[in-house]
Design a protein around this nucleic acid. Sequence first.
DNA 1: AATCAAATAGACTGGTCGGTCTATATTTTA
DNA 2: TAAAATATAGACCGACCAGTCTATTTGATT
Lengths: 184, 184
Amino acid sequence: MKESAVKDRILNTASRLFYDQGYHVTGINQIIDEADIARASLYNHYPSKTDLLLAYLDRTNEAWFRDLERYLHPLPTAREKLLALFDFRIHRQRSSGYRGCHFSKITAETSDDEQVFQRVKAHKERFRALICQLVKDAWHRHVLDDDTLATTIFLLLEGGIALGAMYRNSQDADRARKIVENLL
Amino acid sequence: MKESAVKDRILNTASRLFYDQGYHVTGINQIIDEADIARASLYNHYPSKTDLLLAYLDRTNEAWFRDLERYLHPLPTAREKLLALFDFRIHRQRSSGYRGCHFSKITAETSDDEQVFQRVKAHKERFRALICQLVKDAWHRHVLDDDTLATTIFLLLEGGIALGAMYRNSQDADRARKIVENLL
DNA sequence: AATCAAATAGACTGGTCGGTCTATATTTTA
DNA sequence: TAAAATATAGACCGACCAGTCTATTTGATT
């Protein structure tokens, strides 16, 4: 019943390389070398490079929300959780060298793949919905209505992360957090 | 003194392909074929693919600000110009199939190139400075101080464009514009 | 101890990559 | 009109690409 250690090693290595270097510049040979597995093992578990990409996106998405929910869980109020969204992403950006959002990155690399597009959209939709729910649950100053506030938070956060990838720092995401703090 | 038509054709074709498909998936052969020029002509004008990339970034940056300034020029007030920043970018996104910011895109594709990084940073810095100047010139409700307002506008706009690339629409950039409208 | 699935090494395919080179033709300039 | 610069076609290079295949070895289950 336990998953193959080899399969995990393949996906872990591929995920790291796809995110750190980019999907197209990462060759099958490099994955095989760095995962230290046999060529046939890779093609046994993932019939094509595209399958590997989709598995990377799916697992990243699942782990992303699982980690986020664990990060938010101990916090008592929706307001704190909303601000922690910024902390969560800023922390992850810092510790991954400011390479930006996984899903934004792959979008920039793939122009026409519908399966990729659908996954990216689903990821962002789910994150947006999470923000909307938190805003609804949060007490806030109603200078903005719930929907507008949620959109503002979402856009400020995504903008901050996107700029962080271009500047290789978190100054804009930090600014975004402060702006939201004053908005809540 | 006039620039070679061939050189222009090369850069035009490369630029289109780099933006539409991505840098790494665009091969020299495709550029040669679609620009309908000889292989040696390309390497005569651009000694390497990297030179072509840097020329693409430089020319895109120059044309971008030139177009923007022309777009803003007829508008009478700084407030209108600030809102027109959204119109300008939304319009360009719509007519280019929502592929996102050129500079964000190339950042996602290149992980370690210092020359690319420097150009991306310079482009965003200049745009940020332009917004700061417009905010300073604009009459506004001072619900936020100048610097915070400028950052908010910048982040909302960049966030809206980034999400537009992932959704292939302008709904978030449109929302961002409305939010800023109520902020000014 | 026999079996069978999973993993291994590595040769091999057809194709593309970025880049070089030779040789000829066209255009610009002097 | 001669010389010089620019453009052309296309062969060629070593390297790498994604993916296939054969043959052998390992390790768990029966």
